[in-house]
Design a protein around this nucleic acid. Structure first.
Length: 408
RNA sequence: GCCGGGGUAGGGUAGCGGUUAUCCUGUAGCCCUGUGGAGGCUAUGACCCGAGUUCGAUUCUCGGUCCCGGCCCCA
């Protein structure tokens, strides 16, 4: 009987995982250069960590279970909450800003489809301790930089929830959240009905609809016409100046709500082409979670990149190291092992472990697309010079092991 | 959670109410223990699962499951 893997999970075969590691390492190099430090949190956490910010509704999307000690546990669906929990537990007394990054697998009980799996990988960063536009701008620039480094071009959309919130300041928190939810879903009809239901004045309603439809270059100006000169807009304008300075192309978009999440200020999303319905490859913003988790009033800002989606559109390929196959005869098998070990100082090297004959070993070299076959026969052992066969051209020459190791 | 389309060896496929289930490819071995890519031979290996209809189901029906795509939500 054949076993199958659970739904929404994947096996990564040799070539794929090599590509994934290469892209991962490229991204890693970028964030490290920007001064971010990697952190790692547990694969599972207490269920409460995730329900605290999102409510019990989120349980439907979680892999959760009761452990043998009766504890309610969930596999992490994302990493911002765990990292914030870790911060509150361990990092509050470190110098700020704290600049952290992570690359981990996450789990969500959802219907799998293109670019969506039940186990998926997120690459993300969190900056803790600054609510200044400089921090927001750096985080956005970093996200774009990372995508650039792996050859992904995306459309960057930037907004700020404080402006909508300002407009809705007459509503209580729960009502605001509900409004944001409709905005996030682009459900204009539902939104209108809800605003009607909670008796929002007609003018506010009009303004809200206008604000969330604002997109593009004159959006800021128009927003000012709607809300007046509020400090939130000054702040946003400062952010945009910084983004200009970073040389980023962006679209102002007050329609980004990320309403189900915990964002409170700047929000941004990056969309890539060629991914169908799941075209959002990066999402982030600034938020307040630390107080909720028992820490101080510390602002933070960050983003998550959907690594699996990135892999669909990343356009960089790893460089293969030179590959050698040591070919021996029955009488030189032991010497072949020694020689392979020497070659491994520099090259990826195979030696026969199937007791194959000479010809088959050469055939194997061909199959694995080796660059060179290093022939170790009795003649070579006697003369001390090995036969180096270039598998691409078929040319052969005699060289010592040391010469082969140093040939580049 | 909702709506479509699918599932035959490792990969790609043909077929059909009764076949030894087709072909290509892959892999392993041999022809061939000192020179790869070709060829020949051999081996390997499949009807997603369950129930129903039927004398008989891989084929028809239903349910499940998994994959693919869309909605929703997100990454």
């Amino acid at each position: 009987m054949k076993l199958s893997k659970p739904r929404g999970t994947r096996d990564f075969l040799p070539g794929e995982i090599a590509r994934r590691r290469y892209v991962e390492n490229t991204m890693r190099d970028v964030v490290i250069k920007w001064g971010y430090n990697e952190v790692m949190t547990p694969t599972f956490e207490t269920l409460e960590l995730f329900t605290l910010k999102s409510g019990d509704d989120i349980i439907g999307e979680l892999y959760n279970f009761t452990d043998k000690g009766g504890r309610e546990i969930a596999l992490r669906p994302e990493l911002t909450a765990p990292v914030m929990r870790m911060y509150v537990n361990k990092l509050q007394s470190k110098p700020h800003p704290l600049k952290l990054f992570y690359f981990e697998n996450c789990f969500r009980y959802e219907r799998p489809q293109k670019g969506r799996f039940r186990e998926f990988w997120q690459f993300g960063t969190e900056v803790i301790g600054s609510d200044k536009p400089e921090a927001d701008a750096e985080v956005i620039a970093l996200a774009v930089n990372i995508l650039d480094s792996i050859g992904v071009k995306g459309a960057l959309h930037v907004g700020d929830l404080r402006i909508i919130r300002q407009l809705l300041s007459g509503l209580d928190n729960e009502q605001q959240t509900k409004v944001m939810r409709y905005v996030d879903k682009n459900d204009d009809t539902g939104l209108d009905e809800y605003l009607e239901e909670i008796e929002v004045p007609a003018e506010t309603r009009r303004n809200l609809f206008e604000l969330i439809s604002l997109q593009g270059s004159d959006a800021l100006k128009k927003a000012r016409e709607i809300t007046g000169n509020i400090p939130e807009l000054d702040n946003f304008e400062e952010l945009l100046k910084l983004l200009d300075f970073y040389g980023l192309d962006y679209t102002i978009d007050f329609g980004i709500a990320r309403g189900l999440d915990y964002y409170t200020g700047m929000v941004f999303e990056i969309y890539a082409e060629g991914l169908g319905a799941q075209n959002q490859v990066c999402g982030g913003g600034s938020y307040q979670l630390i107080k909720l988790f028992g820490g101080g009033e510390v602002p933070s800002t960050g983003f998550g990149i959907g690594f699996d989606r990135i892999m669909e559109v990343a356009s960089i390929e790893p460089e293969e190291p030179k590959k050698m196959v040591v070919v021996s005869t029955d009488s030189t098998r032991f010497e072949a092992i020694n020689i392979a070990n020497r070659l491994r100082e520099v090259y990826t090297t195979h030696v026969d472990i199937m007791k194959r004959n000479f010809k088959s070993q050469l055939s194997f070299a061909n199959m694995v697309e080796a660059d060179y076959a290093v022939i170790v026969g009795e003649r070579e052992i006697e003369s001390g010079k090995l036969t180096l066969k270039n598998m691409h051209t078929g040319e052969q020459c005699s060289m010592t092991v040391d010469e082969i190791i140093n040939m580049d």
